[in-house]
Simulated assay, not measured.
Amino acid sequence: MRSGEPGTGNRESEKQERSTSGSRRFPRGVLFDLDGTLLDSAPDMLATANAMRVERGEPAMELEQLRPFVSRGSRAMVGAAFPQLDAEARAALVPVFLAIYERELGHHGAPFDGIEAMLAEIEADGGRWGIVTNKPEYLARLLMPVLGWESRCGVLIGGDTLPERKPHPMPLQHAAAALGLAPEDCVYVGDDKRDIEAARAAGMPSVVALWGYRVPGDLPEEWGGDVMVESPHDLLDSARWPARAT
């Protein structure tokens, strides 16, 4: 809901009342991974990989063949699409992958079920949220207007925004500071081991998003996250968030 629309005044009053009454239900700041956490971007990635495969005379691959690799980045997805190529040949295809992905961006994927309701609850509670992803920043920013998040996302850090990327803590520390908060006053939600490692190194409570993308053999219970949740709908329950961040 944009400012000036019916009901905006009531919602802003509710935010102010919650933030001043000490009855906060959700963390003051929530930072999210993007692919596999907020956004089911695997269909966009599949369209990209299959465009490349068709151009090279290969049959289309199925979504479930690519899906586990989406959170691992473009190199991993190129490797899944072309397992017969050596590392050097795969690396040479990464710019091609990114160029085609820019064309397919936002045309096939969508936020996971429950994400929009969760973001609305965080906002209604007076909290702020942002995104810390290893996706190149320019691609992440192109998605914001497609998703209607350009005026709602308080900070966006991409994999090339800073000198370091996850699992280094710098992106999370920088994002928390941009929200005007200490790392311990935020929560990071992610679906990959690197997300949880980055949060732990930053001194930030973390939530393991079990609905995301994982390769066979991943053991999220060993990542050291503060909380593990099966669905974005679980996070509508304020009791499911790490207690020290609320």
Rank of each mutant, 00 (worst) to 15 (best):
W129T: 05
G130M: 11
G130A: 08
G130F: 09
T133E: 12
N134E: 08
N134R: 08
E137T: 13
E137F: 01
L143H: 08
V146N: 03
V146Q: 14
V146Y: 04
L147A: 10
G148P: 12
G148E: 05
R152Q: 14
C153Q: 02
G154L: 11
I157C: 09
G158E: 04
G159R: 06
D160E: 04
D160W: 03
L162Q: 06
P163Q: 07
P163T: 02
E164I: 00
E164T: 04
P167G: 10
P167F: 05
H168S: 15
H168M: 10
P169E: 02
L172C: 05
H174P: 00
A175P: 08
A175D: 09
A178W: 02
A178P: 00
L179I: 11
L179T: 09
A182V: 07
P183E: 06
D185S: 14
D185P: 00
C186G: 11
C186K: 10
Y188L: 12
Y188W: 02
Y188P: 06
D191S: 10
D191P: 11
D192V: 03
K193L: 13
K193S: 14
R194G: 05
R194C: 05
D195R: 03
E197A: 15
E197P: 01
E197T: 14
R200G: 10
R200Y: 00
M204S: 07
S206K: 02
A209Y: 11
L210A: 15
G212E: 10
V215S: 14
P216W: 02
G217V: 05
G217S: 08
L219F: 01
L219H: 13
L219R: 15
P220L: 07
P220I: 08
P220C: 10
G224D: 03
G224L: 12
G224V: 02
G225I: 01
V229D: 08
S231C: 09
P232E: 07
H233S: 12
H233N: 01
D234W: 07
D234R: 11
L235P: 09
L235F: 06
L235H: 05
R240Q: 15
R240Y: 01
W241F: 12
P242T: 12
A243T: 14
A243H: 13
A245L: 07
A245P: 08
T246E: 06
